[in-house]
Simulated scan of single mutants.
Amino acid sequence: MHHKNNPARRFRTTGLALAGLAAMLLAPLPAAAQGKYPDRPVKIVLPFGAGGVADITTRLVAEKLGEKLGQRFVVENNPGAGGISAARAVMSSPADGYTLAVFSNGTAVSVGLFKSLPFDPIKDFAPVSAMGYFDLVLVTNATGPYKTLGDFVKAAKEKPGQLNVGTIAAGSSQNLGAELFKSVSGLNFVIVPFKTSGDVLVALERNDIQMGAEFYAALRGGLEAKKFIPVAISGSKRGAYLPDAPTAKEAGEPKWDVTSWNAIFAPAGTPPDVIATLNKALNEVLADPEVKKKALELGIDARGSTPQEIQDRLKSDIAKWADVIQKAGIEKR
């Protein structure tokens, strides 16, 4: 066929081949060929304001992650009801490991507390690792009549509906922890919500409330000054930060077991190798003695996990707190 050696035909064929080659060269490289993750700064979005326990620990972990992985890990505070704003910001980001979310016990609470959420923490996110675990502390006024949890329980039985327990806002982890205590103990006392942790402690000093339920970081100053007695902690074992405080089980209330947590999650669809890199680095950072020591000063047991372990924890806590919210009659928002 005479067109085999046709110059125009040859030119078109060569042109098509060159165009195809150019397209291949200009196409985005597959993830494996783009360089090792991370090759640019990573953002961690936190659903809390600056200066709190979660903020301090996340910044500590972020700094160490940066040293380990050779890129900056930048913490961005995005507070708001139920962590909705922070979760939205991460969910709408590319699933490439460069925008991460901090979830907490509060995330699990939000599922039961809000009529609807614009995100599903199970379906819309991929678990990476836990960062830390921390317990609630029940405290009484050191100058008051209740020196042990048993003293408070006895008085609550003798004077139903007359004793007050203070927490921060209704629906907070502290408030729901107190609701759970009320439910499993069968006691009749009044749970009084305050705006801030400071307000709770002032009310306790004034004897306006007979017991407070708070995290150790907020109580530390008052405990060190011997203003308050830690009558029980909510975890299954004593805290190294407060070794003299009995567990609820030791204090006679074995059904009250609450451990709050913070964890790193990524948008759903984040590549498994990126999750694996982050998980390995986080577990190594959280085993660092310096990180452990600084976290313990805030009452936090810095400890990593597998992705599956923290996902299972999130699922079980969603069910647990939905039940507490329903039994306490807390109105959905």
Results as ranks from 00 to 15, higher is better:
Pro7His: 09
Ala31Asp: 07
Leu286Gly: 05
Glu158Gly: 00
Trp256Asn: 00
Thr57Gln: 12
Ala156Asp: 08
Ser260Asn: 15
Asp55Arg: 07
Gln71Trp: 01
Ile310Met: 12
Ile44Phe: 10
Leu298Gln: 13
Asn279Val: 02
Val190Phe: 03
Asn6Val: 01
Ala54Cys: 13
Asp124Arg: 12
Ile209Arg: 02
Ala155Asp: 14
Phe11Arg: 14
Ala319Trp: 06
Val75Pro: 15
Ala240Glu: 12
Arg333His: 11
Ser234Asn: 04
Gly82Ser: 11
Glu63Ile: 04
Ala328Val: 14
Phe189Thr: 01
Ser116Arg: 07
Pro267Leu: 02
Lys327Phe: 06
Ile84Leu: 03
Ser316Thr: 11
Thr148Arg: 00
Val42Met: 04
Leu18Phe: 13
Leu180Val: 03
Asn283Phe: 00
His2Val: 05
Ala19Val: 13
Lys68Glu: 15
Gly132Gln: 06
Leu219Cys: 03
Asp312Trp: 07
Leu100Tyr: 10
Ala155Gly: 01
Leu138Arg: 00
Ala81Ser: 14
Ile325Arg: 04
Arg72Pro: 05
Ser197Met: 08
Phe48Pro: 00
Tyr241Ile: 05
Ala287Gln: 12
Gly269Ala: 12
Ser234Asp: 05
Glu214Gln: 13
Ala217Ser: 15
Pro30Thr: 01
Asp96Trp: 10
Leu296Tyr: 11
Lys294Gln: 12
Leu25Arg: 07
Ser183Leu: 15
Phe134Val: 02
Asp151Ile: 00
Thr99Gly: 04
Gly35Leu: 08
Ile233Gly: 07
Gly235Trp: 02
Thr14Asn: 04
Lys36Ile: 10
Ser173His: 05
Pro307Lys: 02
Val231Glu: 00
Pro271Lys: 12
